[in-house]
């Protein structure tokens, strides 16, 4: 990843103003399973070669929720996302999305079903422009007429991207790159968005802005599965959370409760 440091004045700018106009209010989609469960992961085991990375992970995401997955480096958070999106299919266990088994589906058909993501390390196409990156996000869609509408929605969320749409993605600052990655994920018109460490390597002012946008995307009706190392911020925006430790789920609870949990406070929030 070639990340250039932003010019100082750009980083110091205040976050872009909140867009007034928002996409139409969320409609409760009725296509989820019981209790509005949209994604159900049951006891998955994923391997990298012979390394047993996930040792039985189960989690759920319901309609309208932000669910966060927190834990230390190497706990298996990103691997969990890679298992769900088909980049590393699990060897055992079951992943059901909107009532359909997607455990062994390839990545492209999972995107087509409505799970899109902002991958770890953002993974933009650095030599494409911002607009081209956003177009790649809508790659698997065939409804070209809605493309403009979605583009406007992304630009409303991230006004800065509209200003920089012809700029090469590789030359953006880290925060702007994260915006492109999130915008790109939204261009797929997802039914579930997975964000992998959106705050990684960003200036504090950008981190706050990114989490505000996460909330906003959710309020517009999209459930979010959020992987974060910044546990405090993540638990602040999320409804529920899962704490991962070396391939297991160690704890799960409401986000508020987790934030108050002594163990969590000690291990992840840096409190005594």
């Amino acid at each position: 990843m070639s990340e250039q440091t932003p010019p100082p004045e750009r980083a110091a700018e205040s976050p872009a103003p909140q867009p007034e106009t928002q996409a139409p209010p969320q409609q409760q989609r009725a296509n989820g399973g019981r209790d509005g469960v949209i994604l159900e992961v049951t006891d998955i085991h994923t391997y990298y070669g012979s390394i047993h990375a996930l040792k039985g992970i189960s989690l759920q995401v319901r309609e309208g929720e932000i669910v966060t997955l927190i834990g230390a480096n190497g706990a298996g958070k990103s691997t969990t996302l890679r298992s769900i999106n088909g980049l590393n299919n699990p060897r055992k266990g079951r992943i059901v999305f909107q009532g359909k088994d997607i455990t062994n589906d390839p990545a492209h058909s999972i995107v087509k079903m409505g799970i899109s993501q902002s991958p770890e390390g953002r993974r933009l196409f650095p030599h494409m422009s911002v607009l081209e990156n956003l177009e790649m996000g809508a790659f698997q869609r065939t409804d070209r007429q809605n493309f403009k509408e979605d583009l406007d929605r992304v630009y409303a969320l991230f006004p800065r991207l509209a200003e920089r749409k012809t700029q090469r993605a590789g030359t953006l600052s880290g925060g702007e790159q994260q915006m492109v990655a999130m915008g790109r994920a939204l261009m797929a018109r997802p039914k579930l968005v997975m964000l992998d460490e959106p705050s990684m390597g960003l200036a504090p002012i950008f981190v706050e802005r990114i989490f505000e946008i996460v909330k906003e995307i959710n309020q517009q009706g999209t459930p979010i599965l959020l992987v974060e190392q910044n546990a405090m911020m993540a638990l602040d925006v999320a409804h529920r959370g899962y704490v991962m430790e070396t391939g297991h789920i160690a704890l799960t609870d409401d986000a508020k409760a987790l934030a108050k949990n002594e163990q969590v406070q000690k291990a992840y929030l840096g409190m005594d």
Binding site: N85, A107, F125, P126, M128, Q140
Partner: peptide
Amino acid sequence: EDETAAAAMGIP
């Protein structure tokens, strides 16, 4: 440019 990202975008 980036095979993993391409797969994540839904490119078969």
